[in-house]
Amino acid sequence: MSLRISSELQNFISELGYPFTTLSSLFESKNLDKYLDSKWIQSAHIFEILDKNANDQQLLTCSNVQKFYQFIPPYFAALSSKNGQQAISRLASYEQLIGPIEIGTFKEGDKLRIHIGYLNQYRKISRFSLLVDQLSIISLIRTGTGKEVKPISIGSRFEYSQILTNYIGIQAQMSSDNYLVFKLEDLLIPFKTQNDIVWNFMEPGLKKYIDELNVNPPFSAVVQNVLFKLIAGGNFQVKDVAEEIGISPRTLQRWLGKEGTTFKKELGKVQKVLSLNLLQDATMKTAEVSFLVGFTDVTSFYKAFKKWTGKTVLTYRHEVIYRKNQFNSTN
C-alpha cells in the first residue's frame, strides 16, 4: 500500500531534507532514522533561533495541523482517530518520533487535563516550542472535528499575546506547569478525518520506530507520568505505580534511589503541579482540589501546599486573581 502525498508537499519536504514521497517509503527506508537523528540534534539550535526571531503569527502558522500533518506521522495517526480523546492518546504514544516530548493526561471529572513536558533541557525554556505544541493540539482537535473547539483552560510560564489569545478563545493562565484542559464531551465529538485503513497501515511502522528510537527518559519522569494518570482514580500508592510500570515496588524504590529521589518526593512534585493549576479555577473549592490531587483531608493538603510553595492556599488564590486583573487591565 502506497499513500502518496501531494507534489507541493513533496517539494517542501525535499527542501527540508526529508526524502519521502509516500508514507510507505517513509517507513520502509532508513530515511526516518536520519530524520530523527538530525531533528533531535538540531532542535535546540532551531528553537533558539525561533525564540529570538519568529513572531506570533508565524508561531500560529507552524501550529496549523492542516499544513504539516501529512509528513508528521504522529499527527497523521492522531487525525485518523475516532475522536479527540483517542487522538491525544495516540499523539502521547508517538510524539517522541517528533522530538523529546512527554505528554501526560489527567481526568478531572468531566474534563481532561493534558500536561506537556520535555526531556531536552533547551525545549523546557523555549517559548516557541511549548506554545507550538499547545496550539498544535488545539488545531488537531479543530481539524478533526471541523468545529471551533476551545480548551476551558490553558497555561504556562510564558506570555500569550492578544493574537494567540484570540486564536485560543480564552485567556491563558500564568503557571509553572505546561497544560491544556478540555471538556471530555468536546473530545468525544467524532472526527471527520477518521481513517482506520490509514491507521492500520501506519501503526506497525510507528511502533517499530518508537521502539528503535529507544528514548530513555529519567525513571522519575516515567513515575511522574504514571502518577498523573492514576491520582484521579485514587489508587496511586507505590504498589499501584509499580504494577502499572510492570516492576516490583522494591525495584521502583531502588531505581528512584539511583536518581537521588524517592516515591514520596515524586508524588509531591505531581501533586504540587496539579494543585497550582487546579487552584487557578475559581469555580473549584479547595476541598475539591484537595480530593482530586489525592488528599483524604483538606487540613493535610493545606500543610503540604504551604511546604511546597511557602504560601497558604488563600494567598496563592489571591495572587492568581491579582494577576488576572492585571492582565485584563492591560488588554
Results as ranks from 00 to 15, higher is better:
residue 141 I to A: 01
residue 198 V to P: 04
residue 198 V to Q: 11
residue 248 S to I: 11
residue 57 Q to D: 11
residue 66 Q to G: 15
residue 34 K to Y: 14
residue 100 P to Y: 03
residue 126 S to I: 02
residue 210 I to H: 08
residue 18 Y to E: 12
residue 213 L to N: 02
residue 124 K to F: 04
residue 266 E to G: 01
residue 34 K to G: 14
residue 179 Y to T: 01
residue 253 Q to Y: 06
residue 129 S to F: 11
residue 42 Q to M: 14
residue 283 T to D: 09
residue 164 L to V: 11
residue 96 Q to L: 08
residue 221 A to K: 15
residue 313 V to R: 02
residue 3 L to G: 04
residue 256 L to Q: 04
residue 197 I to H: 12
residue 193 T to R: 14
residue 315 T to P: 03
residue 228 F to Q: 00
residue 3 L to E: 07
residue 72 I to K: 13
residue 22 T to R: 05
residue 248 S to R: 09
residue 149 V to S: 12
residue 113 R to P: 01
residue 95 E to L: 10
residue 326 Q to K: 11
residue 205 G to L: 12
residue 256 L to V: 04
residue 62 C to P: 06
residue 17 G to F: 08
residue 88 I to C: 05
residue 285 K to W: 07
residue 120 N to H: 08
residue 183 K to T: 14
residue 270 V to C: 06
residue 260 G to V: 01
residue 128 F to M: 12
residue 147 K to W: 07
residue 88 I to H: 03
residue 167 Y to T: 00
residue 230 L to D: 08
residue 88 I to R: 06
residue 269 K to L: 15
residue 144 G to L: 05
residue 148 E to Q: 12
residue 217 P to Q: 03
residue 4 R to I: 13
residue 107 K to F: 07
residue 97 L to S: 04
residue 53 N to K: 13
residue 169 G to F: 05
residue 271 Q to L: 06
residue 273 V to F: 12
residue 283 T to I: 07
residue 159 E to A: 06
residue 190 P to W: 03
residue 195 N to T: 08
residue 299 T to G: 11
residue 193 T to D: 09
residue 174 M to L: 13
residue 166 N to F: 00
residue 232 A to I: 02
residue 188 L to N: 15
residue 168 I to F: 02
residue 288 E to D: 15
residue 82 K to A: 12
residue 37 D to M: 13
residue 174 M to T: 06
residue 176 S to I: 13
residue 116 I to M: 15
residue 190 P to N: 10
residue 227 L to F: 03
residue 76 F to G: 09
residue 130 L to P: 03
residue 305 F to W: 04
residue 215 V to P: 09
residue 217 P to R: 03
residue 213 L to G: 03
residue 31 N to Q: 08
residue 55 N to Y: 03
residue 228 F to D: 00
residue 63 S to A: 15
residue 253 Q to D: 11
residue 105 T to D: 08
residue 258 K to W: 10
residue 321 I to W: 06
residue 41 I to M: 13
residue 151 P to G: 07
residue 39 K to Q: 14
residue 205 G to A: 07
residue 7 S to A: 08
residue 100 P to K: 05
residue 325 N to W: 09
residue 196 D to E: 15
residue 88 I to E: 06
residue 101 I to K: 09
residue 142 R to K: 13
residue 282 A to G: 12
residue 77 A to H: 01
residue 181 V to R: 01
residue 308 W to N: 04
residue 271 Q to K: 11
residue 197 I to C: 08
residue 39 K to M: 13
residue 56 D to I: 02
residue 96 Q to F: 09
residue 245 I to A: 06
residue 154 I to P: 00
residue 57 Q to M: 11
residue 180 L to I: 13
residue 17 G to D: 10
residue 114 I to Q: 08
residue 179 Y to V: 02
residue 61 T to Y: 15
